[in-house]
Amino acid sequence: MRYAMAVDTAKCVGCSDCVVACQTENDVPHGFARDWVVEVNFGTYPELKTEIRSERCNHCDNAPCVRCCPTGASKIVEGGIVLVEHDKCIGCGACITSCPYDARFSHPDGYADKCTFCEHRVKHGDDPACVAVCPTKCLYFGDIDDPGSDVSGVIRTREYKTLIPEAGTQPQIYFLT
């Protein structure tokens, strides 16, 4: 089993509901965000193209944050989810520095924090909060090893890209273009 997410950049309107849903669901402290929305504008008026991406931790297969963690607090659990074990984390900041996506931050309580793919929800079969709440249904989540899952379906039929694959991280968030 390998959890993955697909983001339809053509359907996303950038409402940031995913961000708020995550902050609410995961009690993210005020002023912090585990997911965020990026808007990219290409071209010159009137030939413009906009791409809106809801971004978060890429739950990389080759995760530099897991590699550099000196205590093993950052780890990959079932389904390929990259998690931080709070009472093993010393707050050294190595994982924060190692992430090319800047997906991690230092939680005010001291440990490194980031998107968990809502591990507490997905293990009961629910979607992550951001996916469940998305009003345009542009986020797809599921087991990429299962050909019948939503995410496998869109990746099979649509063109997609991942973010900085050349960093060698093997990211697992797919952006449908």
Partner: peptide, 14 residues
Amino acid sequence: MKEELIISGRMNPN
């Protein structure tokens, strides 16, 4: 031209 901006207001300290 390519312009990129974070529109969600992510301003994670540090």
